[in-house]
Design a binder for these strands. Structure first.
Lengths: 184, 184, 184, 184
DNA sequence: CATGAATGAGCTTTCATTCAT
DNA sequence: CATGAATGAAAGCTCATTCAT
């Protein structure tokens, strides 16, 4: 029974993300991805020009969501409430995109850093930081703002370690994140 | 000018850590380490049995320090002030060990996870968490306690990104970390 | 604007010859040819059974011309003047067929040798040589006769290197070629 | 019985040149070279950094000889006799270096052109041409000078096709080459 | 007339590792 | 204390080719 049109590409992305997040980018070979899918390596190359291209594709939706949020935020006046709203919306994006992508990013620093998509993502985080961090605030407050983002990101990773309901962890992480922002 | 006795082993560790932290564990080949030192790959194998062994050796001091701290903490009654003291002492350990090792650990999740030394380190972090986190506390407070550690760890990574004096960042991160602990 | 019937096949030949001559047979992939034409690889296979088949087709006209000339020559009595006439006519064929085909042949020895069409071409050159070279002549004269052909062939390649009008180079090469034949 | 020191590298060069000349650069895989020698592909990479590097190494001696000749020639006043002497010495170089290298160069145009060593070789030929060709001479004479070089080069290739003693072919080719130079 | 999807074979290259000297 | 030489395994990638639609 042949795969349905458009199916394979999506399956590659799924399997790839799973393996990249679990075993790391470098340790995951295209052979492994292909084998899991029951196709040949060459088939992967039909759908993606390079291994890195798979990652690029994986980042795409997330990138678009983040860009949209950034664009929106830049049109608003910067107030404490805006910052909180940005954090809330970012949390929502994270929830939708699932934890694997973030885990992959956080745990594969060197690999991601060398990829074009990685540089892009870094830039986006900086853009975020620019919104959340008041450049005139104290150093501790600046760090807090960064930790705020990190709190959300990490919560997705921590879900495995804390023996609690995913949604509950997610909600708690958001609460912590909001608390880390300077009060309005 | 010939290398001094015992010197080579230390130099290997230094160069290896630098490269592991910068480029990642997988992307750093023994050839590269050897070339930087002006020795052959085979020389590395004289000093370390495997590539992983270099990492093991790198973790050793840090591991000992952390173990000592844990042992000490376990003898004390668990009070809010103890928790704060543990965080302070841990911060001191981090400062001494330099940021590279932590950066390597944080950014090379999958690789570290597969190594024996990595599993050990994870266990130690869990031990820490057990001390810092009150199992009966609210989920947000549990997350805060974890973030507290993370704040310190990340501060070492963030030093590159924040345009501020290393010591200042370090102090600020400690302040934030302490604030994240439940008040006594 | 859709391709006209029969058009595609011709365009494939053109692009293929251009790339084969410029980059070599092996370095030119069907993907590259297809991309230049804005069609898919599979389309090439509609028009030609194999990659080698494209080359075969490329050689066809040239082969026919040369065969005709050989056939004609074999009916004439072998005289110095015949030899000169053969060279003249061969030069004319070369001029018509353009330099790319010859350049491809000369610069892709190993590849051409392995193809059926290549073996054919080699046979034809030998037939030529048999006409131009007097087996009883001195070794230098035999070499001169071969160089005579080569002079024409190379002139097409040299046109890029000599800063002179193509037609002038062509005429000069013919003059040299004729001079290399034994006088009548 | 293990290979003797320095042996392997030389054997790789020999086998590689033989295969490159016979089957072409691209069609000759490192696997094939390694198999012929009874070593692994990785062994080749111990001795040469890349496939192209083998070729570079192959060209080295020839390049040095040609450079020396060019340097010498440039110190002499340009006379017809000098040109003849240059051709004679070049012929000698060719004879020493054996025909395979030249055959490889002539028959693998596209591959050689893309290699650094190939570009170098091309430059050297141009330097030669500058010595042999009088820029004010007629176009036919310019072509003749080029053919003169070519005559020598080709003679090495022709040795297979002409049923005559190698030395005799070589001598005849030199005679023809000298005849193609403008008389003094 | 052509495409989309896939394959199998093969390529160059790199890596951690070994071992006799 | 270290090197020179080599290996086995695997990686990422490309290619000519096929075939159902």
């Amino acid at each position: 029974m042949p795969r349905r049109r458009g199916d394979t590409r999506e399956q590659i992305r799924e399997v790839a993300l799973e393996l990249f997040a679990e075993q790391g980018y470098e340790k995951t070979s295209l052979r492994e991805i292909a084998e899991r899918l029951g196709v040949t390596k060459a088939a992967l190359y039909y759908h993606f020009k390079t291994k890195e291209d798979i990652v690029t594709s994986l980042f795409e939706d997330f990138k678009a969501d983040v860009d949209e949020l950034c664009a929106w935020a830049r049109e608003q006046p910067v107030t404490p409430e805006l910052r909180r709203e940005v954090v809330r919306r970012y949390a929502e994006i994270l929830r939708r995109s699932g934890g694997r992508l973030m885990r992959f990013m956080l745990e594969n620093g060197p690999a991601v850093r060398e990829m074009k998509a990685g540089g892009d993502a870094r830039e986006r985080f900086r853009a975020f930081t620019d919104i959340l961090v008041d450049k005139d605030a104290s150093l501790p407050d600046q760090i807090r703002a960064r930790l705020s983002l990190l709190s959300l990101n990490m919560s997705l990773v921590l879900q495995n370690e804390i023996g609690a309901d995913d949604e509950a962890v997610y909600a708690a992480a958001l609460e912590v994140a909001l608390d880390l922002l300077p009060p309005g």
